[in-house]
């Protein structure tokens, strides 16, 4: 509480920034280590099939409704955003182009990944975090069962598979949402919109989104497992871990999106 001079305040600012940077580096290092042990556990690809199926089922059940709703709104929103332009030019055949392109390559994969991170990733962190604070992970190790192999690998695989599948479904729902709004607000016929999509969008637009979702799924999985297994301090710690997970996932999604777009995969 003591008043520090201007110099002290600036030094404090640097101190804070340095501490934050060290913290980010530590978490990132932890995630890389986890990624390494997941990959090593996959080398002879052995996995607990029951855990995989259980996780796929649970994650799918949890996320399908919210992802479908999000995708529908995302498609509709993209059409609204291009609507003034389209109406001014009277170029209804272009409506599908702008909306469809943005949905397939960017907005669809990103929004679906953000929602997936909030639903499945956060849930995974909470679940693993609870297991960590109640020593269930140590319990597994004490039973001579490797937690990475038994718990983490099936979750990582399930999250990647699920997010790719959800993005593929979400893309379709989003285009449907775009077309529905085009019909409702702009009076564009379904067939016009369909042709506008079909003429202007190619498989590479769809595939870029899918590649992205593959990377996003991996990032969300590693992030959520990392923050879940490093929880400390009871209920407060679990809440904090979930918070850190959604933030870290969002940042990794944006960074990956940037690099994947530039590499033009």
């Amino acid at each position: 509480m003591s008043r520090r001079g201007e110099g002290g305040r600036i030094a404090g600012l640097f101190e804070g920034a340095g501490a934050a940077a060290i913290n980010v580096a530590r978490e990132a290092g932890g995630m890389v280590m986890l990624l390494g042990s997941v990959l090593r556990a996959l080398v002879p690809p052995s996995m607990d099939g029951r855990e995989l199926v259980r996780n796929l089922h649970k994650m799918g059940n949890r996320s399908v409704p919210i992802v479908a709703l999000t995708a529908f709104f995302a498609g509709a929103l993209m059409t609204i955003q291009s609507a003034p332009f389209v109406q001014r030019l009277g170029a209804t055949s272009l409506a599908g182009w702008a909306a469809g392109y943005a949905v397939l390559r960017e907005i669809g994969p990103i929004l679906i990944a953000l929602m997936f991170s909030g639903r499945v990733g956060a849930n995974n962190t909470a679940e693993l975090g609870t297991m960590t604070v109640t020593e269930q992970l140590d319990g597994l190790r004490a039973l001579a069962i490797d937690p990475v192999r038994y718990l983490i690998v099936p979750r990582v695989v399930a999250m990647i598979v699920m997010l790719v599948a959800l993005t593929a479904i979400g893309d379709l729902v989003a285009l449907l949402g775009g077309a529905a709004l085009g019909k409702a607000a702009l009076g564009i016929e379904w067939t016009t919109m369909y042709h506008s999509f079909a003429d202007n969008l190619g498989p590479q637009d769809f595939l870029q989104g899918i590649w992205k979702s593959l990377a996003f799924g991996g990032a969300i999985a590693i992030t959520s497992c990392h923050f879940g297994t490093t929880v400390r301090g009871g209920a407060v710690g679990v809440g904090r871990a979930v918070n850190a997970q959604v933030v870290a996932s969002a940042v990794s999604i944006m960074l990956l999106d940037f690099f994947l777009t530039y590499m033009n995969i």
Partner: peptide, 19 residues
């Protein structure tokens, strides 16, 4: 509940607020 409840609440908040 305990830690599970907090995790659940946090998850619900992220989804609820984003949506």
């Amino acid at each position: 509940g305990s830690s599970e409840g907090v995790g659940w609440a946090t998850t619900a908040a992220v989804i609820g607020a984003s949506f």
